[in-house]
Design a protein around this nucleic acid. Structure first.
Lengths: 190, 190
DNA sequence: GTCTTTCTTGAGTGATCACTCAAGTATATA
DNA sequence: TATATACTTGAGTGATCACTCAAGAAAGAC
């Protein structure tokens, strides 16, 4: 049979994710992708089909990694400590291409056009919210937070706080670490 | 002397602001603007110079209106009550073109390219933060919140919360009114 | 009415967009 | 080695981008 591709598909998706994450959908041209991924147009389209198809793949990857990271953290620290640690972690990682959430950026950019990618981003955010709610519920079952609290409502507020934090963390005039600490402190008071 | 323009410049800027606010910078083409504003290319460029120049005007207008509205509210309700009312107000207004903050959307979209408009948006957000800090300081001087609290830090957290809330309010699977109520409740506990 | 000045019009600019495709190249099987 | 089967290449597609400009239309000054 014939030759194999000269590239590592997974590595290309990860690299594309970082570019889209940083520059957004309209802000990333095929030329950008071809240059950064080292693919000529023909190879690009043979491998991924279209810019939007690759973007969808990177969204998927981004969302899966996010859920997996949080769940691993919860396994290690327990649900409430994971939720308290998460704010600092998401703005900390120096190797991240951007602090703001890629799902939120995608949704904000494309929602007004009813773009398919905005809907995908929205679904991934909903998944993440379910994830948060699960951890709050587990913390409640463990008696770590008040029994009268609504885990779904806590999750919605928590996710909202994280989105704001991560957007704020992009700014040079904001001390994001303080905000992260305050969010964690709020959880302690539940 | 010669004829006057057939349009109301201020009204055009307001209309352009709504389009940019909803669709973003890259998402709004000159054709969009010409159609919605009722201007042919020549008139558009005679009136505003460029797409970016008009965008800058709309950012200015947006930021000024935001500060003015909050300050008027503080005049009416007092500083702390204004801060408590603001979350519900910014997601309430049914006539707004979008719930998310236009400054935040602009910054998120254009920051990675070091675009001049991202810097302008950032400056306007910093102005808004100063505005929040002023109100927290006044509330503190009036003894409405703890004397040990740092108004600047409170303002940064508050702004972050508002950004998250307004982004969340764009989503159909989120009850933004609950989040707004929870943010207001947090202020009551200060 | 006539002139002057500005506004309006819309076809047209080069650049860039996402994307295509035919030709060339490399590799696993036979 | 011969053949079959992809993968790679890069010039080229039409569409759309922000923007220009010359010509025509309109309105105050006289």
């Amino acid at each position: 049979m014939p030759r194999k591709p000269a590239y590592d598909r997974d590595a290309l998706i990860a690299k594309a994710r970082d570019i889209f994450w940083r520059q957004g959908w309209a802000g990333t041209s095929l030329k950008d992708l071809e240059r950064e991924l080292g693919l000529k147009p023909g190879s690009f389209y043979a491998a991924f089909g279209s810019k939007d198809a690759l973007y969808a793949l990177t969204l998927e990857r981004y969302a899966q990694d996010g859920v997996a990271r949080l769940m691993a953290l919860a396994e290690e620290l327990g649900p409430l400590e994971a939720l308290k640690a998460q704010p600092r972690i998401v703005i900390d990682s120096a190797q991240m291409p951007a602090r703001a959430c890629m799902l939120a950026k995608t949704y904000a950019e494309l929602q007004s056009k009813d773009h398919e990618l905005a809907e995908k981003a929205s679904r991934h955010m909903a998944d993440m919210k379910v994830c948060f709610a699960t951890l709050f519920r587990r913390a409640q079952e463990a008696g770590e937070i008040g029994a009268d609290l609504n885990p779904d409502r806590l999750a919605a507020r928590y996710q909202s706080d994280l989105l704001g934090l991560r957007l704020s963390a992009e700014r040079s005039d904001v001390n994001a670490l303080e905000i992260a600490a305050d969010i964690a402190a709020d959880i302690d008071r539940l």
